[in-house]
Nucleic acid binder design. Structure first.
Length: 279
DNA sequence: CACTCTCCCTGAAAGC
DNA sequence: TGCTTTCAGGGAGAGT
């Protein structure tokens, strides 16, 4: 599931492959993903040079040599792969970029929760995807003071609040669970009770879990591309996510008997946590 | 406005 | 073994 670190790693791989290259041809192989592709997207991209590729929240931004940006989101099953020109297509290869060095980059997304669209550069900040978004924990100015203020008076759970991209961007289900565990904060706690003292524990752990994942992603992939051509995915060792009924790994509790990781459902989504360590 | 719920989609895994 | 059911989840929009 691509969250901030995976998108960051995909962007670095795409930068390596695509920056400076001309899009010789772009095949758009269906009419939509989560939203329709813009009219004439293939024609609008053909002949353009890729100037820069970067991450904004969980979106991939491709900066072209005209007034346009490509905006892409991987949803939950979206992947970018690279192959040599002419390799057999997969049924879920929805967009194929043919570069001017005979390399192909493909946007593959079986579940089609992803999207790809175009936006004038001057309208990017005011685009509906971005205009209400909170700060970025990695590149932005997320501080304990900001988070405590943003959560003040809210009755919803801290788990739900951290998934809300209007408060802060980049976190998905996995990293929210991991950051709360590392902070010793219960996912069930009301957001409004995250005072400055608790925010001072939480914010550094949000940043740490994301930075660590980006570092692993960057170092585990040669040139950010795996042997199978896939960009941006790597092995993780989660402390709580997906570990229901397994022993808690928090060393501090082991002296008094380790807790057991529990799974609960919040907002229709699984939350993993240690009731003993997280209060 | 704050908050919760439902839906979109397919493939892997679990259940029978 | 083979079929059916369940689950995963980001974000939009509807509903309370």
């Amino acid at each position: 599931m691509p969250e901030l670190p995976e998108v960051e790693t995909v962007c670095r791989g795409l930068s390596h492959l695509m920056e400076g290259r001309v899009l010789k041809r772009v095949d758009v192989r269906r009419k939509d993903l989560r939203i329709p592709f813009p009219p004439q997207m293939s024609a609008k991209l053909t002949g353009r040079r890729v100037m820069r590729i970067y991450r904004r929240a969980k979106y991939i931004i491709i900066d072209l040599d005209n007034d346009q940006n490509v905006i892409a989101h991987l949803g939950m099953s979206g992947r970018m792969t690279t192959v040599n020109q002419g390799d057999p297509l997969d049924a879920h290869d929805h967009v194929v970029f043919h570069l001017d060095n005979n390399v192909e980059v493909r946007f593959n997304d079986p579940r089609r929760f992803g999207l790809m669209t175009l936006c004038a550069k001057t309208e990017l900040d005011s685009h509906k995807f971005f205009k209400d978004q909170g700060p970025d924990p990695v590149t932005g100015d997320l501080t304990p003071e900001f988070l405590a203020a943003a959560l003040k008076g809210r009755s919803t759970s801290i788990k739900a609040a951290l998934l809300d991209q209007r408060i802060i961007v980049g976190l998905g289900n996995i990293y929210v669970c991991e950051a709360l565990f590392r902070s010793g904060i219960s996912p069930k706690r009301k957001s409004g009770t995250i005072n400055l003292e608790r925010a001072k524990k939480l914010v550094p752990e949000i940043k740490a879990v994301l930075f660590e994942a980006i570092k692993v992603g960057g170092s585990s992939l040669r040139d950010h591309v795996q042997p199978n051509g896939e960009l941006g995915y790597f092995q993780h060792n989660w402390r709580v996510y997906g570990r229901e009924d397994e022993p808690c790994r928090n060393i501090k509790t082991h002296t008094s008997g380790a807790g057991t990781i529990q799974r609960i459902v919040q907002g229709g989504r699984s939350t993993f946590f240690c009731p003993q360590c997280q209060k």
